[in-house]
Design a protein around this nucleic acid. Structure first.
Lengths: 224, 224
DNA sequence: ACCTGAACACCGTTCAAGT
DNA sequence: ACCTGAACACCGTTCAAGT
């Protein structure tokens, strides 16, 4: 039994399964995360996973909790005195965004989960806490959570992404239908002229995110 | 051949296939929309559909275009003089929202499509047009589109939905973990007290949507 | 040109059986 | 208690064959 210690692998656990799942999503995207592939990754059959997660939905919920834990961790490390509610909120939300950028599949996953995990509830509770400390009524804090939406967690769905379908073609494509979308063509042309480097991916996602976030936070401050 | 006119059904077409697909999604949700089910609905085999749509992705893109057309139609019917950019934008976006409410599956579908259809590009072009007429620079209009995100199309993903998992249980559940989420408990308690009818579904989605929309539009107006 | 039936390569999941 | 292999009921899609 010389190789007895190398052959049998560590026993499975929910923790181990979830971490392997995140690793697969990070490496190959969330659509690559199948029960069979996950089983392979932990050195077991797909069916063995069901002893540690109830089903695939439970697996995905577990992943969300793992990401939330990562956000909590980062937020605590970079905590800031909360005498300025706006600065504190801004900091916390941009921390969440940092984590989201490390897991590009996370936003879409968060959107599809229908039940809110305890970790997610606690996160929003903390945001309300920051706003209360800043003098918000419960009512306004409530409106604020709705207004922020997913932006509270550091992401926003970009339905309008002129850079998508990208390459240098997208700008030319727009120009080809100049008569149908005159205003967008004007917009792209002017911005491309101001910053010639930006033909590909001419939207600075981080800047756009912060612009929208500050727009909302400023507006809330005014209604406080 | 007396029954020859009743037996053979109308020949398939892309239009017919897409409309049937929307009907299925409206009736039973987007997850009920499978190629086999859709084939059945139009009285053909699933495989026949591939003569009218390239694949399932193309089918979904087609559905998005259909919904966009519906939005355009309603917007034109309810058009408003655009001397007030903010009022014009508000009107147009709330029209889009009306259509989204008729197709509850649409927001999730819109989010998952990666390529922007011509109809969607045109919609955003019109929004830019409204803003330009209101004195916006291209740069600010560009920021505005990003800041609005999916809200420009009349929906927002509600990650924070205290009413979810709902029933009268959700409030009790929150109270059970009062020590973990003190601020949310306080918020729910106060709002429930102010409006006792609101225990179930105590968030007025339409009001929240308009609050957030006005917050953004007011903020944009100030930076105009 | 349009439609069909059988088949393929995937899913998540159940179940009886192993240790 | 934990893990396995075969099987089931689904997917979207390919392909050769029909009219």
């Amino acid at each position: 039994m010389a190789q007895a210690s190398s052959e049998p692998r560590a026993p499975l656990s929910r923790e181990l399964v979830l971490r392997a799942a995140v690793a697969i999503a990070d490496a190959d995207g969330i659509e690559a995360l199948t029960m069979r592939r996950l089983g392979e990754a932990v050195g077991a059959e797909a069916m063995s996973l069901y002893h540690h997660v109830a089903n695939k939905g439970d697996l995905l919920d577990g992943i969300v909790d793992l990401v939330m834990a990562e956000i909590d961790e980062l937020a605590e490390r970079t905590a800031v005195p909360d005498d300025d509610w706006q600065q504190a909120m801004r900091r916390r939300i941009l921390s969440a965004r940092e984590v989201m950028l490390k897991h590009p599949w996370a936003p879409r996953l968060f959107e599809t989960r229908t039940t809110m995990s305890l970790a997610m509830i606690r996160y929003h509770d903390q945001l309300v806490g920051l706003m209360r400390a800043g003098g918000f009524s419960y009512d306004l804090a409530h409106h604020a959570l709705h207004a922020l939406g997913s932006r509270a967690l550091g992401f926003s769905q970009e339905l309008f992404d002129p850079a998508a379908g990208a390459g240098p073609g997208s700008e030319r494509m727009l120009r080809d239908m100049a008569d149908q979308v005159p205003h967008l063509v004007g917009m792209v042309t002017e911005i491309a002229h101001d910053d010639p480097d930006s033909t590909i991916g001419w939207c600075d996602d981080q800047a756009e995110f912060e612009f929208a976030l500050d727009l909302l936070l400023d507006g809330l401050d005014r209604r406080r």
